[in-house]
Design a protein around this nucleic acid. Structure first.
Lengths: 209, 209
DNA sequence: CACTTAGATGAAGAAACCTTCAGCTTTGGA
DNA sequence: TCCAAAGCTGAAGGTTTCTTCATCTAAGTG
């Protein structure tokens, strides 16, 4: 039976009454809270349920196992980030590639640094096999959007937008990770942001005309 | 007893006969192999011992617990990387900052991509609390070396070498991570390497004179 | 208001894995 | 050669945490 593995991560029951929707939401929120406060290693389903104000049994009514719970939590966060990126990629079309890059950087930094704690804790669970897959998936979507965005740039580009997108995104994520490693001061953050813009623009200058 | 926590991760016994050195080495190597083949989640001490050709008891004679084992494995890899970086940072002094950056990039890419599988698997365990600390520690050392390196550049710099080092390293690690995510083709790798040099140099041009 | 279905409970079962330790084997020096 | 110390063994104990399920409560509907 080839479908077993896939089934094992699907929600066990779909909420039909509104109260259960609230329950699911509380559980996901609690998962993130527990993750941030005690860390991935000490996160247990019982603890999450307790934090959510429900019993373990309830938790297992909506999530078939612990992995699925963590996955759902990660996916929720990723959806948030990717939505913001895809959004800006749509609205910044047909502009100078420098403006586009600036918009992308600002969006990315804002959405990731908005809740530093959450993002940092979620990196921890992303290393699980399936977390890797989700992260890669999101990475691909971001890459596609960005490529599409750069394709509409008013400038004529000297190399493929795919490659440019890869480089710019790598640079942004590299910097973001660094910023998430330890709570940056406001001063450091703005200095790095400026340099990131600087670097990206300097690079893009070599890619136009 | 404030020392307890620290003691808990120190090796339990120091090898004095040469055979035990070989054993420790085999165990560390086996840990990496198991990590790569079955992943962090399914790695058990028994499995590692078996792969190393020893019994669990032997493993526990040199590592007080599973965490210490993973830490030691991670540290070993990190030491390898940081040694290469510090090495190149020493030998590339008093040269053009562009050459310095090129040397740094080539070293970093080579040492990381040399064994893609190992590096990628190790990222997975680095998310454990202490792995984070080790990674940060190595990051700091790399940052110090790089700062020192750039300080000796023949060009006059327009902003602090610390900041330049931060940016260049972020960029390099961002790209490296991307390359480790999925086995890159030779073509893609060389294209990205070229762009990374391109981007870094473009950035550095804005930092000189 | 009765009745069906959705939702919630949490003690207890089950499985997985870490870690120990009493005893055995090998090594190397006197 | 002999022996003390180093090294090795692996079954068994102990924890921890996941997951289930029989039972109870709340919600909606005719």
């Amino acid at each position: 039976m080839p479908a077993t593995a896939a089934i094992a991560f699907q929600p066990r029951k779909t909420p039909v009454q509104s109260r259960s929707e609230a329950t699911v939401d509380a559980i996901l929120q609690a998962t993130l809270q527990v993750l941030v406060s005690v860390g991935k290693e000490k996160l247990t389903t019982t603890l999450v349920a307790h934090r959510a104000g429900v019993s373990v049994g309830t938790l297992y009514q909506y999530f078939p196992n612990k992995s699925a719970l963590l996955q759902a939590t990660l996916r929720r966060h990723m959806d948030h980030v990717i939505a913001a990126v895809e959004d800006i990629c749509k609205s910044a079309r047909n502009r100078s590639i420098f403006d586009q890059a600036t918009a992308l950087i600002d969006t990315y930094l804002e959405v990731k640094l908005n809740d530093v704690n959450n993002s940092a804790s979620l990196y921890a669970i992303a290393s699980d096999v399936d977390g890797m897959r989700i992260a890669r998936n999101v990475g691909n979507r971001a890459h596609r959007s960005t490529t599409a965005l750069f394709s509409t740039a008013t400038e004529r580009l000297t190399c493929e937008p795919e490659l440019i997108a890869t480089m710019v995104l790598c640079c942004i994520t590299g910097v973001t990770r660094r910023l998430l490693e330890d709570k940056p001061t406001q001063k450091f953050l703005s200095a790095v942001r400026e340099q990131l813009l600087n670097m990206t623009h300097a690079y893009l200058r070599t890619c136009v005309r």
